[in-house]
Structure formats: C-alpha cells, structure tokens
Design a protein around this nucleic acid. Sequence first.
DNA 1: GCCAGACGCGTAAACGTTAACGGAACCAGG
DNA 2: CCTGGTTCCGTTAACGTTTACGCGTCTGGC
Lengths: 376, 376
Amino acid sequence: MSRTPTTLRDIAKALGTSIGSVHRALHDNPGVSQMTKARVQQMARTLGYRPNLAARYLSSKKTLRVSVNTLKGTTSFWDEVRSGIRQEAAAILLENVEIEFRTYPRLGEGEEESFAAAIRDKVDGIITFPSRPQVLRSWIRRASRAQIPVVCVATDAPNSGRLGIVAVDTLASGSIAADLMGRFVGQREGSIAITVFDMAITEHAEKCAAFENTLRTFYPNLKLLKPIEDHDVESEAYNKARKLFEKCPDLAGIYVTTEASIPVLHAARDANLQERLTIITTDLFSDLVPHIRCGAVAATIYQRPRAQGGMAFRMLHEFLAEGVNRSHQVALAPHLVMRGNLDFFLQRQSRESAGEKKEKAEQPPETTRAMAEDVV
Amino acid sequence: MSRTPTTLRDIAKALGTSIGSVHRALHDNPGVSQMTKARVQQMARTLGYRPNLAARYLSSKKTLRVSVNTLKGTTSFWDEVRSGIRQEAAAILLENVEIEFRTYPRLGEGEEESFAAAIRDKVDGIITFPSRPQVLRSWIRRASRAQIPVVCVATDAPNSGRLGIVAVDTLASGSIAADLMGRFVGQREGSIAITVFDMAITEHAEKCAAFENTLRTFYPNLKLLKPIEDHDVESEAYNKARKLFEKCPDLAGIYVTTEASIPVLHAARDANLQERLTIITTDLFSDLVPHIRCGAVAATIYQRPRAQGGMAFRMLHEFLAEGVNRSHQVALAPHLVMRGNLDFFLQRQSRESAGEKKEKAEQPPETTRAMAEDVV
DNA sequence: GCCAGACGCGTAAACGTTAACGGAACCAGG
DNA sequence: CCTGGTTCCGTTAACGTTTACGCGTCTGGC
C-alpha cells in the first residue's frame, strides 16, 4: 500500500540489522544464521518487498544465458522460431541476455546430447523442442533439479517439471480445419482423411480429436477415416496417401497436420485427384506456396513459429528476471493462410529474414528495422 | 566493437571534460557551450554510446506517463484494447510506466477534448484511436511539436506526423474474407454485398478493394455490389440491408466489415434469408456469439484488439525508452473465428477479463495469473 | 573598481543492489 | 595466553546516470 517500494534498507532498518544480512538471507547465501534468515524472509513478505531489477542489473551486470535447443532448419519452421526468440530478446530493455543456439540435425538425433551440453555449461534457462517427449522427460527433470527452468515449444513434455509450454492450441487448430473442410466440401457426402505424425504425441492426438469432434457435430454428411501416421517420412506419406486414394473412392478431403504435405500433394496429382479433393495443410514453407496459389491447397493452418519462439522466450525471461511464472501454458491461435492473404504472410516472412540478414551483416544499432511482427 | 559498453565517463575522459558536461550535451540541456556540445555528440557517436537504461531509471526514477485515448467500451473491442495495453505495460521490467485512460463516449464526441487534455497534462506519449482522422490530424501535429509521440490504433491518421500505427492488415482481412466467401458460396452464381463504416476512411476503402480484388480474381462467378455505408448506426444498417435484400434477389453473401452486424443479421432473419445467405462478420462480441454458434454467421474476422493494444504500447514504450522507432507500421494478421474454434476465443476472453477483475480487487503481486495471451 | 548576473564547467550525492572485506565473538588445540 | 579457524554480521565500494550545488570567469552597469 505504501507509495514508495520497500528496499533492502527498509527491511534492515525494520529488523535492526544490516543490509548485507538481508541480502544474504533473501538469496539463501551462507553467512547468516537460520534465525535471522527466517526473520528477514518474514519481514520481506509482510513489507511486500520486490527487488529493484534496475539496481540489480546495474550492480551485478551478470548476463542470463539461455540455451535454445531446436531442430536444424530443414524447413523454415525452426528458423522462424529462432528468429522470434532473437527478436524478443533484442526487445528486452536491459541487454543482459545471451542466447546460445544448439541445433540437432534430425528428429531425436543429438537431442539429448545438446540438452546435456546445456546443463553442463550451466546455462540459466533452456528453451527446447522435445521431439521425443518421453525421452527428454528425464533430462528436463535433471535440469529442474539443477535449478534450470525449461520451456517447451511446439510440443509438450508432460509430467517433466518443465516451467511451461508454448504451442498452438490443438483444439483451435483441429476445429477450424474441420469447420473449413465441412464448409468447403459442401453438402455432398464423402470421406475425410487426416494425417498425423504419430498418435502417441499428445498434441497430435488432441488435434485429431478436435477435428473429429467438430466434423461430427456440424457436418454429419462427412465420415472421418482412421488417422494416417506418416512420421514425417516423405516416402511413407506418399505411399500411404496413394493407398488411401485407391481404397477410398469417395474421399472428399484430407487434412495434413504434419509438414509432409508435399508428398500428399504429389500423390493426389499422380492419382488425378487434385480437382476433386479439398486439401488443408499445416504451416507455410516455400515448396507449398505454388500449391496454395493455384488452389490445390484450399487453406493451410499456420502455426506462427515466430510468435511461439517469442512467447517462449518471454515466459522464460520473466521467470528468470522476476522469479515468477504467470503462465505455465500459452496456447496460440493459429493463422489461416489462403490464396487471398498468402502474399501478406510471404511479405512478412521475407521482410523478417531480410532484416535478420542485414543485421548480421553490418550490425548497425541505429538502423530502423523495416517492420515489426506480432510476436508479442 | 569493444567488449564493455561505453559510458558517460568514457566520453568525458576521451574529451578531457567532465561527466556533467557530457550529460548536458547529450540531453540538450542548458549550461554547455555549442562547441563542447558538438564535440561530445560527435564523440558519443564514434564511441557508439548507448545509455544504460538501468542506471538511468535507477537514478531518475521518473515514470513515463502515457495517455490512452479510446472509445468507451460500448462493445468489448476497446475494453480489450485497453486490457492489452495494461498487460503489456505490466510486463515491462522496470515498472516506470503510468497509464492514464481517457475515454470518450461516442465516435467523434469528446475526442478532441481528451487529446487536448493529454497535451495539457504533459504526458510523455499518447496512444489514440483517431475515429475522425482528418479532425485529429492537427491535434497530432500539435502533440508532435510538443515532443509528444502519438501512436494510432485500429485506424491511421496519415500525414499527421504520428510516431506509428498499429492495425489489422486491411489487405489480409479483405482478402481472406473474399476467399472464404468464394469457397463457402461454391460454384453457383450470385451477388455479394459488403458493408463498411465510411469509404472516406482509408482502411475501409483498402479493405473493400482487397475484398473486391480477391473475389474478382478467384471467383468470377460472384459479382460484388457497391459498398453499403452504415456509419455504425444500427437503424441505418438495418434499413439498408432490408433494401438490399429486396433489390437483389440473387444475393449469395454479405461481408460486414463494421461492428453493426447484428442489425444485418436481424434484417436477414426478417427477410427470411438466413438459410440462403453466407454472412461473414467482423470482430467478436457477446451478442454475436449465438449467431456464430448456430451457423448463421459463417465466420467472423477477429481483429485482435488485445494484440493491437499490446503492440501499440510496445511501439510507444520502445520509442520513449530508447529513443528509436524500429517500426512505424505494424500490420497484424486477423484471426478467423468459426463455430469450431469459437470456444477457444471465448475462453480466452473470459479468462483475461477474469484476471483483470481479480487484479483490481485484491491487487496481489504474487498471484500467478491464469494464463497469458499472445499479444506479443 | 565593485557588485550582479549570466554562463560554462567540475564535483558529489543520490538511486537499490551486489560482492568483497574486515571485525567481533566464540571455540579448539598448542 | 596465543594462534588459527569458524560463524555471523556490519560496512563499503562499486555499477552508470541524474540532479543539485558551487566555483570560476566574463560581461555590463553603476
């Protein structure tokens, strides 16, 4: 209630002790008795002490180091996630954050090693993409024991003690896809297929469920087939799609939730089904662009990698700086990209990556960047 | 290039002068000769001086005051904008920002007065909704002359010297609406109508043009009628809609870009056209919810008021804190709300407003908020 | 020649936190 | 009794900026 915030000095005066002891007590540093430590902590609470971050930073000048463990950019998705993190880090007033990128080449390959390296290097926090949640779980636990908070991006690692998770809302993604599918297909009867990476991943199962649920509720004329798992393997996706097209002549649409939409599109072309099929895909990368533009892909659900990266960094930094964790779970609404607004997203992507390159090249602190993005 | 950032002291030593003079020179304060001022500013540039914000804040403790001039919440739109601003302000590390809300009751009524009041009170920055851009332009100029930066939300005030503008991208909104309309209506021929607030507002004209452009390019079977201006007056919207329905029997769909979607819906119901008409609306408020849920509204273009407010605050604060302005124009991608993902957005809205209320009630610095949002 | 006032400049005390140092009190072993 | 080692605690110098104060020096007016 007091107008001026309480300081270490206030606590010290109130207790008749010194500012040094108060500091030691509040930071669990050695050199203070149990007795005074308790009294200080109590008093800090009743006085509503909140550290002055400006003073802290000015005095200590120690930089926070965060490790970003993600998949190497085969597609642009993870590049954009990293870019979002960088951008958000640059927006911090106090330039006291250092980011170390650790990338691994393939799903599940090198993932544990880079996590181990981050812990070994004693970073202050980790942002990671747990491509194999069950494998990474024990590693995240280990980090938590070492007081290193971990934020997951895109995929959750449940029951791991992670600080938080940032991802696109599975319900919103699956439902909007189903809703669009139903509207696009129209009144006629038919079957709808859905492809996923692996039903063992919580997010994918949830997305499927949401899709099915919305489809069944609002579009009873459409029948949902059993999910097809492609494990992001191109040949697998292609072959399974071909087999599907043969087996199911009344197929009206297909929702590809994985990145492997190109093989599905090729399969549709080879089966001469491009015209008849309503295809909804996921994410936005250059190979997909012509298919959207020509209308073969009716819509794509854009998972906003930049926003995901930005939010993940925000969450982690907020915890590291203030010690509080407002939001353990951030669920983003996906964007919808179609022919009409495709250019908007492409422009934004190129603008961002141009800004990145430019910055790397000259590193000019004064140049005004072309345009911001809606990460935050 | 140097590892440690340059300080005032560094500049002073390099010039053989004192830290006080350097400070005066860099801030255009009186008490320093033209000669030394020039030398200091030159040296600051060559050494790449950047002020240490932590030290600045710690020393001066002056709080930035920003005025938020918006429309009183008849709908929830402006309430959400304000909420986004509040939330973004709370996320600032240094708690040195004070927000003053000045709301005016109706479009164009009290708008100038509150702007004048903000200037009179010598706030450090203004976020405003220029409901009458041409009227506000001279006021924004006046603020600029008084060194008060102004950020516009939702609507631009071109050629006013404003610091920047945050809005939903008109091209993306109009195009996606057209694209959806075309897909929803299907192959059959028909006319499409569009309602706007006023074609004199740049944004609305642009949105119209984008809608028309996309419709013509991809859906030649549909014919776009001349835009209907409703000026956000309910009766006007209703009457013009009724007249439209009479005059145009082959109407297949209507895109309502204003907030006045309810009267249009009522008109459609009264004309017994609910079934035949594909209706796409704008924004999301409680009265609209049942119409979305029952399918009368096929989709609504959500303009993300919270994100707009958040971005506007970010832009202004970045300028006030660092003196730079990376992005004069932020164009957000709108969200698409349909039956399927409606609950996601409603949950988020209620969660946010619940958090707000709770905070007002107890003001507990320690409670963890229920959930973050993707403003940033 | 002297007092006012203006101007240019240096000095120093804050701001709240961190980190390092030094002292007081106590107990052990010699 | 002295030395060496704990354990606890108070003091103090940073960190970089802002702000207030005060000292010269120069000018013009009496």
